[in-house]
Amino acid sequence: MQNSHSGVNQLGGVFVNGRPLPDSTRQKIVELAHSGARPCDISRILQVSNGCVSKILGRYYETGSIRPRAIGGSKPRVATPEVVSKIAQYKRECPSIFAWEIRDRLLSEGVCTNDNIPSVSSINRVLRNLASEKQQMGADGMYDKLRMLNGQTGSWGTRPGWYPGTSVPGQPTQDGCQQQEGGGENTNSISSNGEDSDEAQMRLQLKRKLQRNRTSFTQEQIEALEKEFERTHYPDVFARERLAAKIDLPEARIQVWFSNRRAKWRREEKLRNQRRQASNTPSHIPISSSFSTSVYQPIPQPTTPVSSFTSGSMLGRTDTALTNTYSALPPMPSFTMANNLPMQPPVPSQTSSYSCMLPTSPSVNGRSYDTYTPPHMQTHMNSQPMGTSGTTSTGLISPGVSVPVQVPGSEPDMSQYWPRLQ
């Protein structure tokens, strides 16, 4: 039975679970980093996980050691009161100082060594604690504590007292930064006198190289990059290397530039699409467009005044059976039934097929058609009795279509119309 579990990581490298990497692998990681390889490249070359490479390099940059820390136990506290007071002093002298600059000053002034120097995250935590204590304490208590930490007896009751030896409130920041720059020169002199001055200088240079600022491109470089971006948004590694040799930039910087440029292009394309949609959409909808001609068919113009009344309900007709019959029939052209047409008796099958359309009241044959006459024609229609054979009435077949029909004066039988409509 094995005491430890061995495995293979996602890159194909072998590791022992819970145990640190061998010293030979750690040394190779540092050597590759000094030669300029990126952590992701080191991870692929040595088949070590990216997190492990970053952790080893980060500890090497901070402490200069590649040895693993002790497994188990607690780390001794490195942010001692003396170190905290120095950090507060540096922050007062130059409020814009960075944590890694404070760390360098602690090393250069001999406050800490490589073994007990606090990390950048520890210094940031100390600065946050100082800021929170400043908010919790009152103004007087804060000034007393700062005077105690600074070891001075001057008056701290006013704002300019934060910067000793100065009279203009805006000047101390520059003086403090100048003092810090002077301390940086002392850093070089002190570290050069040490035993491991060369190694420390190499480590600091490598650290500065990794902690780079934003790349500033010249106009020629920007023009070359934009020209390549117009050709393709995704250049391959050969195109990037050719462009890197042409404009004297690292291939990694060119790759990052193209990634950022593609993101910018997507944002601009989104804005262009929004403007295009806004320009195509009308600002207001016309009133006429809300009524579609496919839904509402136009009603033909009436030929006679009587045809303006298109349904039985508008003429005072309360018989719903006839109203439904007229509205359900398709529109037909106007025609006239003459008196000489043969009077065919209704076929029983045809009569039964339209039995649902006729009223059940037996008085329908005896009703006159003056009910369908509009009010303004009552006088004219009353002067001509319906009993004469020459009287013409208008029957409504569908809305908007008038059918003048000659009705025999002897017997106005409704059943004569249905064979004609089939």
Rank of each mutant, 00 (worst) to 15 (best):
K145V: 07
R69M: 09
S43W: 01
G51K: 06
G18A: 01
N124C: 07
R26G: 00
M148I: 07
V16R: 06
K28I: 08
S85C: 13
Q135R: 10
S65Q: 14
H34V: 14
A139E: 13
L46Q: 04
V78A: 05
I87K: 01
W100A: 07
I102A: 01
C40V: 14
T25Q: 15
N114K: 08
S43I: 01
V8N: 06
K28Q: 09
C52W: 02
C40M: 14
Q89C: 00
G141D: 07
C40Y: 05
D144T: 10
S96F: 15
K75V: 08
N124L: 04
G138R: 08
Y60H: 04
S65V: 07
W100F: 09
S24Q: 10
K145L: 07
V120E: 03
I45Q: 07
L32Q: 05
E109N: 10
K91Y: 02
M148W: 09
L32V: 03
F15H: 04
L130A: 08
E109M: 07
G73T: 00
S35P: 02
N9P: 00
N3R: 08
V16T: 15
A88K: 07
N116I: 13
S121I: 02
P20D: 04
A70V: 12
G13T: 02
V16M: 06
R67T: 12
M142D: 14
A139D: 12
V126I: 15
A131F: 12
E62T: 15
V78R: 11
L106Y: 04
N150K: 14
N129I: 06
S85A: 11
S96G: 15
S74N: 00
R44Q: 09
T63K: 04
E31Q: 08
P22F: 05
L21G: 00
S85I: 14
R69E: 04
H5Q: 14
G7W: 15
S24P: 15
K28T: 09
G7H: 10
L32T: 02
S119D: 04
I42V: 11
M137F: 09
K55S: 04
L127G: 13
C112K: 07
F98N: 04
P95T: 11
C112P: 07
P81D: 07
M137A: 09
S108K: 12
G13V: 02
V53H: 01
G110W: 10
H5C: 10
E101T: 13
N17H: 00
Y90D: 04
G141C: 14
G51A: 04
E93F: 10
F98L: 06
Q135M: 14
